[in-house]
Design a protein around this nucleic acid. Structure first.
Length: 817
DNA sequence: GTTAGGGTT
């Protein structure tokens, strides 16, 4: 009966749906603006051939350097080809800023500024609607959409831009999209890359053995003259590149080299913030000695630099020659305008996850040839440029062609969790361009087991399913689930958001002391996690009482980045909203459809005691919740400043930590990072006894020193409980009989019964004792010592008579009845 | 005694 009703309903709905769909397509077609292409962009010359390729191929690879116009013109070409009617033309960017600004440029070119026909969607901003034809978004947003739109049917076509960056998101999407292509013949995909690794992409997207076509679009850049200036050319006495090496001198030689070629701004690539500080200082001294101090501006540039100082680079004033000292941030994330010369030290800090030690390493390494070329390309945008490489041509030619993709350098827990929650099968079956190493996959599963996200058979658990749907790192997700259970969500949500965003505390190189003094009032002596809460309390109090602009001023006065504080608030609000709404959040059995599950999450419960921030009782619970996500971050203090972490790892406290001075015996660390040393950052003092109930699935138990107690009438032993080799419980005295009844029985017989020392009410034992005593008395009187029943005989007697389960006094007395 | 850079339902 129900089936008939359903099917008749089905017939009524389906035609309606089709009509509506046609109406949507028609109205979207009408709304398409006239399309024109700027003649000066190189990609415009490829329009005809691209249109033809789109008609014939499901996937196209477009290789184009900066300035080729690919990012702005490709969506228009897809729109002209007839796509974008049934679904949108999606276009992904690695960064939010780029997604927004490219959307604005396309809208301007199409004359749609002011409506949402060209829209964008990023984490905290959705500017799209049902009329959106072209949708810019971060690749993370598209990845998130796969959870609710499996075949990505919202889109007629997708452009994955900057694929050469090979971030985790991009690699995952490229694997995912291969399957979408297989299921949707009408769907179109364009992959763009700024480097010449196109062949890999083309082969990945082979259809029936035919690789995807590649279109090469020339850039609009000017030629760049490459010069090689290895250290042995600067310091002629040096026998090799390491001999007496001085990075400052080397860089100055490079700057002098390009300065002799004429006026223009210089961009210097260096690996670390510290190098930027030291080398820019040396360079300033160099120009001062030459009497040219007033002719140059020395400017640092790195991601952590306060916004105001970054602005000096993007809004130049005066006519001095600017020398910008930058990290990798200037290679792809930020474009420094007007650069004529590049000096490239050829190195960068590269993150590499060490699965064995669970530490994120940040070694300084030689960058790939692709990266060297990208850096050189930064000076050919306004006029012919010169790039001086502080290494030899031979060195360049021997380098890796491309930077190792992130998927080969990171903890895979989150990627594996996604393949499991999206039911994509096992990760080694998933079509990734660069499959991760098997041991990296194993360690990824190990992390998931640590979190209880998978069981011993690597099957997704209820916790895993919930973590997979949360927009945070699985460790942070785990803390949030525990916080809900333990009743400390208000505090842990603030802390979780803080862990997810970049640290808002700024420490400008020339005002480090002032910054440290300003931050001191936020430091909690036992927990850096509670320092976040102190900072939060301060910010929220100010926010309630002062204007926006005043709030920003207060932030800067306290060396806090206003932008990052806002990001923190945004992430906090998103997490709170997630918790308040039921579906991804509650355990599956509870999220019955139709049941309203609106919950309340209030503000953190602050203590009356300003410095403590949180009452002592809640300290325990909050840190227990944090521990559920950070069990492999537990460490024990050792000699001097050393700590021992999971698996015997040697660690040092981060010197900027609020607990640095206290050096607590047991800590939990939010991060383990190896730079100059292996550091535990974002640390809190914990009690080892908090850990055991949270780590039942991970701890190992061992027992020692079995011994007998006449007083208790039972055998005991000492238990040691260890977590990743750390003794969280030592010498816990336990009754032996439940653990090892045979040994307990033996001890009872040997020590309690054979020596007649155990007090007992057991009648047979008392009778035997009286009998033994009587015989002993008679033997003494008659001087017949051979009749004495010695302990050896008593032991043998009980050993042969007592059943196996009689292993302590209580059981003995019960058996006796 | 002090970290390269991005991103998320």
């Amino acid at each position: 009966m129900a089936a008939i009703e359903l099917s008749s309903l089905h017939h009524k709905i389906l035609p309606l749906f089709r009509v509506e769909r046609l109406t949507v397509v028609a109205s979207r077609s009408v709304s398409i603006p006239p399309i024109e292409y700027p003649a000066e962009l190189p990609i415009t010359a490829h329009r005809q051939s691209l249109l033809q390729l789109v008609a014939e191929h499901r996937v196209i690879i477009v290789c184009g350097e900066t300035g080729s116009g690919k990012s702005t013109q490709l969506p228009k070409i897809l729109l002209e080809s007839g796509l974008g009617r049934r679904g949108m033309i999606g276009h992904t960017q690695p960064r939010r800023l780029a997604a927004r600004s490219i959307a604005a440029r396309i809208a301007e070119e199409l004359g749609t500024t002011g409506d949402s026909r060209v829209g964008y969607k990023i984490r905290f901003g959705d500017q799209t609607s049902s009329e959106t034809l072209i949708k810019l978004m971060t690749d993370g947003i598209l990845l998130a959409e796969t959870q609710s739109d499996r075949d990505l049917r919202d889109y007629d076509a997708l452009i994955i831009d900057e694929a050469h960056e090979r971030s985790l998101n991009i690699d995952f999407l490229l694997g995912y999209l291969l399957r979408v292509i297989e299921r949707r013949p009408e769907f179109r995909l364009i992959i763009t890359s700024a480097t010449i690794d196109a062949q890999r992409f083309a082969e990945h997207f082979s259809i029936q053995g035919n690789p995807a076509p590649i279109v090469m679009v020339e850039g609009r850049g000017y030629p760049v003259d490459i010069r090689y200036l290895p250290w042995t050319d600067v310091n002629r006495d040096a026998e090799d590149e390491d001999d007496n090496y001085d990075l400052g001198q080397h860089v100055i030689a490079g700057i002098d080299n390009v300065c002799r070629s004429g006026g223009g701004d210089v961009l210097v690539f260096l690996p670390t913030e510290r190098d930027i500080r030291e080398v820019s200082h040396q360079t300033a001294g160099h120009f001062k000695r030459l009497g040219l101090a007033t002719r140059v501006d020395v400017l640092p540039l790195y991601a952590r630099l306060p916004q105001a100082e970054q602005q000096r680079i993007f809004h130049p004033t005066g006519d001095r020659r600017r020398i910008v000292f930058a990290t990798n941030v200037a290679e792809s994330s930020l474009t420094v305008p007007g650069i004529r010369y590049v000096v490239d030290a050829g190195t960068a800090r590269i993150s590499r996850y060490s699965p064995r030690s669970r530490v994120q390493r940040l070694p300084i390494e030689a960058v790939s040839r692709a990266s060297c070329d990208q850096r050189a390309g930064r000076c050919g945008r306004v006029a012919p440029g010169i790039c001086v490489r502080l290494y030899s041509q031979e060195d360049y030619e021997n380098r890796e062609a491309f930077t190792t993709p992130e998927i080969r350098r990171t903890n895979l827990a989150s990627v594996i969790l996604q393949t499991l929650t999206l039911r994509l099968g096992s990760i080694d079956q998933f079509p990734l361009i660069d499959p991760p190493r098997p041991d990296a996959i194993r360690q990824g599963y190990r992390t998931l087991r640590e979190l209880g996200a998978v069981d011993d058979h690597d099957q997704l658990t209820d916790i895993g399913r919930r973590l997979g749907r949360m927009p945070v790192d699985p460790r942070v997700g785990r803390m949030i689930l525990a916080a809900d259970e333990f009743g400390v969500l208000p505090e842990v949500l603030v802390i979780a958001a803080a862990i997810e965003v970049q640290d808002p505390r700024e420490r400008p190189q020339d005002k480090r002391q002032a910054a440290d003094e300003a931050h001191e009032k936020f430091q909690h002596p036992r927990s850096d996690f509670l320092s976040f809460l102190k900072l939060w309390r301060f910010y929220q109090q100010q926010r309630e009482s002062v204007s926006h602009s005043k709030l920003d001023r207060i932030c800067r006065g306290n060396f806090l980045s206003p932008q990052r504080m806002r990001e923190w608030c945004d992430v906090y609000r998103q997490l709170r909203e997630m918790v308040v709404q039921s579906p991804p959040w509650l355990p599956e059995q509870k999220s019955a459809p139709g049941r309203a599950q609106r919950r309340q999450v209030g503000a953190p419960r602050f203590s009356e005691n300003e410095d403590e921030v949180i009452d002592a009782g809640r300290y325990t619970t909050i840190h227990q919740a944090l521990l559920t996500g950070l069990l492999s971050g537990v460490a024990l203090a050792g000699d001097k400043n050393e700590y021992t972490g999971a698996g015997g790892l040697k660690l040092f406290l981060w010197p900027g930590s609020g607990v640095f001075a206290a050096k607590p015996k047991w800590i939990v660390a939010g991060e383990l990072v190896e730079t100059t040393r292996q550091y535990a950052r974002t640390v809190a003092a914990v009690q080892p006894e908090w850990i055991e109930p949270l780590a039942e699935h991970l701890v190992k138990k061992s027992y020692s020193d079995p011994h007998w107690s006449n007083k208790s009438g039972g055998a005991f032993c000492y238990q040691q409980v260890s977590l990743f080799g750390l003794p969280i419980v030592t010498r816990r005295r336990l009754a032996l009989s439940p653990l090892d009844p045979a040994t307990a029985r033996q001890l009872m017989i040997d020590e309690g019964l054979a020596n007649d020392e155990m007090p007992t009410t057991a009648r047979s034992v008392r009778f035997n004792r009286q009998l033994v005593a009587l015989i002993a008395e008679l033997a003494a009187k008659t001087r017949r010592r051979e009749y004495v029943i010695d302990p050896y005989n008593i032991r043998n007697f009980y050993a042969s008579r007592l059943p196996d389960f009689v292993c302590d006094r209580v059981r003995l007395e019960k058996y006796d009845k």
